[in-house]
């Protein structure tokens, strides 16, 4: 594994009231590494990646992204967020803005680029996601798969070092899952560090360097995909796999 990890999580704990959502989670992700995080619902996988860009506060533990320690200060939060892109299950595109404006918004208002440069950057990313022809459409005029690809382009426009995906294909019609996964494979091939919460085990096999299995708020297993799928050690992981792989 290369020198310093780009994401370093040590002893993370989080509670929702009395519910212990994350139990002493430690995880290191190297630059360029592709991680698939899976596990039953309520296992804490979404909560974990949402901690990485401070959408969820955590109670104790240590979290570092690109050498920046995340704490509760707004300055540290916004510095970390500039390095971390996120793609949500329900896309969350801004409905009143065109596709290009969705992508150019943060470059203009966060990075301070002028509108033309930001628009060029947006068009470059949209072209990579093969959706540049929809640049002047609005989200409501696109299919779910197209919206999710725009959401990926929008996140990439801040040129993040790490991309988080929170069940990016779970809200899609089955025939649209492929186009989004293809885009994610292309992104992975470009060397992006990716943490992907998904149940798409085909994607995990094809792309992941490591599969992390979570249950009950803790990391139960972490292994290369071939190993994980063939010889999951824990009984819980075996049960989980037998349910989702048909």
């Amino acid at each position: 594994m290369p020198d310093t990890p780009i994401v370093r999580i040590d002893g993370l704990n989080k509670w929702y009231g009395p519910f212990h959502a994350l139990k002493d989670v430690s995880l290191q992700v190297a630059a360029g590494e592709r991680l698939v995080i899976c596990g039953p619902s309520g296992s804490g996988k979404s909560t974990l990646i949402r901690c990485i860009n401070a959408l969820e506060p955590f109670l104790n533990g240590r979290l570092e992204v690109a050498g920046i320690r995340l704490d509760e200060r707004p300055a540290s939060i916004s510095r970390v967020r500039e390095h971390v892109g996120m793609v949500f299950q329900h896309f969350h595109l801004f409905p009143h803005m065109s596709v290009a404006d969705n992508c150019a918004l943060a470059p203009v208002h966060v990075l301070g680029l002028d509108r033309r440069t930001a628009r060029e950057r947006a068009m470059r990313q949209l072209a990579k996601l093969r959706i540049a022809d929809k640049a002047d459409r609005y989200p409501a005029q696109l299919s779910g798969g197209q919206q999710q690809r725009v959401a990926i382009a929008r996140a990439l426009c801040l040129e993040p070092k790490v991309m988080l995906f929170d069940e990016p294909t779970s809200a899609l019609d089955p025939e649209m899952v492929g186009e989004v996964l293809d885009s994610m494979v292309t992104l992975a091939e470009s060397g992006m560090t990716m943490l992907v919460v998904t149940h798409e085990m085909g994607f995990a096999r094809q792309v992941a360097d490591r599969v992390v299995f979570m249950d009950g708020g803790a990391i139960v297993e972490s292994a290369v995909p071939e190993h994980f799928f063939a010889h999951a050690r824990s009984e819980r992981a075996q049960q989980f796999l037998s349910k989702i792989i048909h």
Binding site: R81, F88, H92
Partner: peptide
Amino acid sequence: GLREAGAALSLS
């Protein structure tokens, strides 16, 4: 969710 999307994009 839009608020989270905004936050994730580093918007204040």
